[in-house]
Amino acid sequence: METNAPVSLAVAWDWMEETARSADAAVRGTGSWVPPVAEELVLAARASALSRWYPFTSHNHLRFVDGPAFSMPGAQDDGNELPGSISFDTGGPESGPVFRVWSGLLLRKPDPVLALATPNAVEAVGALVGLLPAHVTDRRT
């Protein structure tokens, strides 16, 4: 097998699910500000129009690019990142999980804009899909 061959989209999503499952297991019961909801979010995103993008996590955000993410074999530095992401945390001391939907690119100017905060992963994914132009999430393109 060629080590520099690009990772397929299906393999990238499978890997993201496994990574999310492992991350959830690592924080479950620890009282971390990062709640064990990464797998829930990844599964919701994979079941949506976001599934045509390569997923990756960065800075506690689920983000998407149009080719293998920078850490995967076959990645290219000139990929296009989806102009939106979903972060997740506990929302403060003693609070439950909160998914935050951001419009714009993380760590770039102008700063991303908070579009929605919700405890529901499916609602957060739907909101992100709704923020994007149709051609970005259209499965036929």
Rank of each mutant, 00 (worst) to 15 (best):
E2I: 03
N4R: 07
V7E: 12
V7K: 07
S8G: 14
L9C: 01
A10R: 07
V11A: 14
D14E: 13
E17H: 13
E18Y: 06
T19P: 00
S22C: 02
S22Y: 11
A26D: 14
A26Y: 15
T30M: 09
E40T: 15
L41H: 05
V42E: 04
A45Y: 08
R46Q: 14
L50D: 08
L50H: 03
L50G: 10
R52N: 06
F56P: 00
T57W: 05
N60L: 11
H61E: 07
L62Y: 05
L62W: 01
V65Q: 10
Q76M: 12
D77F: 12
D78Q: 10
P83R: 05
P83H: 04
T90K: 15
G92F: 05
E94T: 01
E94Y: 08
S95Y: 04
P97C: 03
V101I: 10
S103M: 10
S103Y: 02
L105C: 07
L105H: 05
P110Y: 06
P112G: 00
V113R: 13
V113G: 00
A115T: 00
L116Q: 06
L116C: 09
A117F: 01
T118C: 07
T118H: 04
P119R: 06
N120S: 15
V125P: 07
G126T: 06
A127T: 08
A127D: 01
G130W: 09
P133Q: 15
D138V: 08
R139G: 06
R140C: 02
R140N: 14
